[in-house]
Design a binder for these strands. Structure first.
Lengths: 158, 158
DNA sequence: CTATATGGTCAATGAGGTTGTCTATCGTGT
DNA sequence: ACACGATAGACAACCTCATTGACCATATAG
């Protein structure tokens, strides 16, 4: 079979990153056009980490793999942009719960829709069969929760 | 034909990043064991950008998508670690050519070998056929030069 | 009730990038 | 030949975003 020469081992990781970049860039281009021009690549991770029920700065830091102070600053920034709001927890006066605002939820909903649209386009490009082969291959190559959210920090890690 | 439900669109990008991370982490774990414990994920990009013939800080900055000053600082760091050295260009007194040292070349050679070993392991996991499907799919999803080297800066971009 | 653990904030620090400015050198056009 | 614009590099100031350490308020266990 495949009489093609074996590709060099470094091609796959580079293509993985390039494909990821391409997708995220496309997502942000579209979501910017739909009224969210201030978002940066990692903000999607943060929204996902906050989740529909809200969370706290400490818990957010744990999920994102950063210190609670760094998480707090990120929240502060998103608060100024109007994507999250902070309230107090009646059951625990220490906790300040971070929740997505309507604008934040709108952003999450649009993201999910755009991701589905993009997947449909890849399916049209590759064929659903090969796309599933790719997804299945990646699941087996990198098993586990895809929502490991400590990624933003990882790239520039010491 | 795939009676499985369609996966949500956000899974693929997350898996792409997770797979990339997994591979790069594995590479660095192995290369650390082989005598290069000080390297960080982006250093491989820098070595590739320097190339076998050497380059200058300005050109390096262009390839990496950062300012010449930032490239200069990176070179300074790699010089202290013993991976690159700076010499003067007899044909142009302004240029200071950055070249890989023997240690730098050793690192590149080992990286290439480890990447090939990793690919062989993925081939054993997925089967060569599916691995090629994945590679081919990614080539079509993200065409172009996989060595776009402005990636390190991209992730945290403003 | 006290001791300890936890959530949040403030302050100082460091890594890594940016822009702006300056000098030295190259290359070109008159 | 020479003056001028473009280029390579170094230095400084600043910005962003992370870090650690210290501190206070509050919850919870013994």
């Amino acid at each position: 079979m495949s009489s093609e020469p074996t590709p060099p081992g470094f091609e796959l990781p580079l293509r993985l990153l390039l494909a990821f970049r391409t997708i995220i860039d496309e997502l942000h281009e579209r979501i910017a056009r739909e009224g969210h021009p201030d978002l940066r690549p990692m903000h999607g991770f943060v929204f996902q980490a906050i989740g529909p029920h809200g969370t706290t700065a400490v818990e957010l830091g744990r999920r994102l793999g950063v210190s609670k102070q760094a998480a707090g600053k990120t929240v502060e920034g998103l608060e100024q942009l109007g994507y999250v709001e902070r309230g107090s927890d009646p059951a625990d006066a220490r906790r300040k719960v971070v929740r997505l605002t309507d604008r934040g939820v709108d952003c999450l909903v649009r993201s999910a829709r755009i991701f589905d649209e993009l997947r449909a386009e890849w399916s049209a490009t590759l064929g659903e069969e090969q796309l599933r082969q790719v997804e299945d291959g990646l699941r087996r190559l990198a098993p586990g929760d895809p929502f490991r959210l400590d990624t933003p920090r990882w790239f520039g890690a010491p």
